[in-house]
Every structure is written in C-alpha cells, then in structure tokens.
C-alpha cells in the first residue's frame, strides 16, 4: 500500500459520498446519468466477487463493501426514491455501444481464461468507459451543477492517482498490471477536457457551461 493508492481510494470514496449528499440534500438527481451509475454498480459487482473468497486485508474488505453499498444506494435513489427528478430524456447514451466491445475485449485480452479473471477484466475495461454516459449527458445539456463537477473531479482524480500508484509500485516492487494500467490511462484521458473546464471555470467560481 502506498500514499497514492490511499489518496486514490479516499478520492474515490469522496466522489461517491459527494454524489450521495447531492442527491439526498437536493432531493433530486437532475443532471446525473443513471446509466453511468448502473455501470459503476456493475463494475463493483463484477470486480468484488472475491469479497468472500479472497481475503486480502480488513481495509480491502471494508472498502469493497462500502463501495458496493454506495453504488447500489445511488442507483436506488436515482431509479427509486427520486425517479421523478431523473432526467431520462438526456440520459440517452446507448449502453450496448459500451457493453458489447467491453465484453468482447474481456474475452479476448485477459490474464487467464477463468470466470473470475474474465469478470475482473470486464470490470476494469467497463470502468474505463463507465463515465461516458455522464459526460455525454453534460455535453447534451450544456451545463452541470457545481456539486456534480466536484463529484466528477474526485472521480477522475482517483484513477489519475492510481496511475501514480502503478508507477510507484513498478519502481518499488516491480509490479506491472498491464490491463489495469492501459485501461486506467484511457479512463483518465476521458476526463482531460472536463479537468480543463473544471480548473479554468469551476475553480474560478464560474458555473460549468459548455460553449
């Protein structure tokens, strides 16, 4: 465990908490892509199947449970409790355009052709594109609530910190997880234009609105 990974996990948890607080306090999921949240719940479900079989550490187990809870509670709030505020018209990204290539690739490029390994690979590939429906929705509506941009900032930051963690682990323990690293780079690249808007606009107190 290193500082980049801890900061990454904290940033990831913070993002999920910010989103839950936003939905709960505003009693609305306006501007939030329910499809992205479904994909994140799918990512954690397919990645954390070893929760009961492969004990790594208390930290690992607790965080996996917390992440799963946050993901499913968020999906419940969007499609259940506050479904009347859900903007399904603008949440129109076709999930099959993501799921089909991701499933295909996880069968083609994986470390071993076993069910748990293919599901883990699927979760890694899926996570790298899971934010696209949300970014697509923002580009369609042309703006995002400030708290939503904070959610996206910490969500993008988490995987960027994981890239630093992989560089650190490569140099200190010669650890190299190619599938996770390549997917993590792709995932972080998707956030670049958002990061630019976040830093040049939101941090200057302006509202995030796309030209």
């Amino acid at each position: 465990m290193n500082v980049f990974r801890i900061l990454g996990d904290v940033s990831h948890l913070l993002a999920m908490v910010i989103l839950l607080v936003k939905i709960w306090r505003s009693k609305s999921c306006a501007g939030i892509s329910g499809k992205s949240q479904i994909l994140f719940a799918l990512v954690f479900t397919s990645r954390y199947l070893d929760l009961l079989t492969n004990f790594i550490s208390i930290y690992n187990t607790v965080m996996k449970v917390v992440f799963l809870l946050c993901a499913y509670v968020t999906v419940y709030l969007i499609y259940g409790k506050f479904r009347k505020t859900f903007d399904s018209e603008n949440d129109s990204f076709r999930l099959e355009f993501l799921l089909v290539p991701v499933i295909g690739l996880s069968f083609l490029e994986n470390y071993s052709f076993t069910p748990t390994e293919i599901l883990w690979t699927f979760s890694i590939y899926l996570e790298s594109v899971a934010i696209l429906p949300q970014l697509f929705m923002i580009s369609k509506t042309g703006e995002a609530e400030t708290i939503t941009t904070h959610y996206l900032f910490f969500l993008g930051l988490y995987r960027a910190l994981y890239l630093a963690n992989w560089i650190w682990r490569y140099h200190t323990e010669n650890f190299y997880d190619q599938i996770a690293v390549v997917s993590g780079v792709v995932q972080t690249i998707f956030y670049c234009d958002f990061f630019y808007l976040y830093i040049t606009k939101v941090l200057k107190g302006k509202k995030l609105s796309l030209p």
């Binding site: 492969n54 790594i56 992440f67 470390y111 071993s112 883990w120 994981y162 650890f175 997880d177 996770a180």
Partner: peptide, 10 residues
Amino acid sequence: DQEPQGHDEL
C-alpha cells in the same frame, strides 16, 4: 501474459 492472480487493488 501472466500477471498476479488475486488482484489486491480496489
């Protein structure tokens, strides 16, 4: 390419 089985990251 063989990689660590039992992934230890979240």
